[in-house]
Computed example of a mutant assay.
Amino acid sequence: MTSSRVERHVRGRQAAGTSVEADLGWALGVVFRRYAKEAAAALDGVPGGPRGYQVLSTAVVEGPKRQLDLAAHLGVDRTVMTYLLDDLEKAGLVERQPDPTDRRARLIVATDQGKEAICDLERRLVQAEQAVLGSLDEAERRLFRMLLQRVAVKADAIDPVDNACALADEDVDITKT
C-alpha cells in the first residue's frame, strides 16, 4: 500500500470507530494462540508435538508417502522432517520402508501402534477444539471450520508475492462492512 492509502486506511478505521476486536489479524491471532496452547497440551507426549501429529495423521489417513513428498505436503523443511521421523520411528509410530518404484526413496508408513495412537490423539484434539470454539453451537462450528478451510486452501494456493502485489494495488474501503 502506498503511504496515502495507508493513511486513508488508518483514518477510515478511526472514523468508523472500529476497535482492535474488529481487526481480522487480532481475532485470528487470539484464536490461533488459544488453539495452539490447547492442541499442544492435547498432543503432549507425541514426538514433535503438532508436527509429529500431522505426519502421523497423514500417514494413517493418506497412506504411505515418500519422505520428501510428505515434507513438501506439510510445509516442513526436509532436514527437520528427517529428525521428526527419527523421533516418530523411535516411538514406534511410523516406519520408513523402501519405495518399490524408486530404491533411493523411503515411504513413511504408520505402524499398528501409530494407527491406534491416532484415535486417542484425534479425540483429544476434538476436546481442544471444543474448548476454543465453545462459544459457538455445533452448526456454527461446522460452518466456521468449512469457511476457514476454504480460506486456508485458497490462501495456500496463492503465491504470496503475487498476492501481496494484488493487495497493494487494491483500494479497499474498510468502512464498508
Rank of each mutant, 00 (worst) to 15 (best):
G29I: 01
A164D: 12
T111H: 09
D137A: 07
E89R: 09
W26F: 15
S57Q: 09
E170V: 02
V61C: 01
D23T: 04
V132F: 04
G75L: 10
A40T: 14
A105H: 11
G48P: 04
K90C: 02
A39S: 14
R141F: 06
V10Y: 13
E38K: 10
I158E: 15
D159L: 13
D102Q: 01
V80M: 05
L56S: 03
V94P: 11
A15M: 03
D156I: 08
E170P: 00
V80T: 14
H9Q: 14
P64Q: 11
D162Q: 14
A15H: 02
L84R: 07
V30C: 04
S135T: 06
A139Y: 07
R145C: 02
A36V: 04
L68F: 06
K176N: 01
S135P: 00
A36D: 14
A15Y: 00
G12H: 05
E122C: 01
M1E: 14
V10P: 02
Q149H: 10
A16Y: 00
A41H: 09
D156G: 12
R11Q: 09
L133K: 01
L107M: 08
L84G: 09
R106A: 12
E62K: 10
Q97C: 05
R11C: 06
T79A: 13
Q14S: 03
H9V: 04
R141P: 15
C119K: 09
G75N: 06
A128G: 07
R103K: 10
V10F: 14
A39N: 04
P100I: 05
D23L: 12
G48T: 09
T175P: 01
A22R: 12
A71E: 11
R51D: 08
I108A: 03
A157C: 03
E122M: 01
T177A: 04
L70H: 04
A105T: 03
T79W: 10
A72G: 08
L68V: 12
R34K: 14
K90Y: 06
R78I: 05
A41D: 15
K65P: 00
G17Q: 01
P98G: 10
M81C: 06
F32K: 08
E95Y: 02
M1K: 07
C119V: 07
V46A: 04
R66N: 09
E122T: 08
S19Q: 02
K90G: 05
G25C: 02
R96P: 05
A27N: 03
S4Q: 11
H73D: 11
L93I: 11
A168M: 11
A117K: 15
Q67M: 11
R150Q: 13
Y35C: 01
V132P: 05
L74A: 09
C119M: 03
G29D: 10
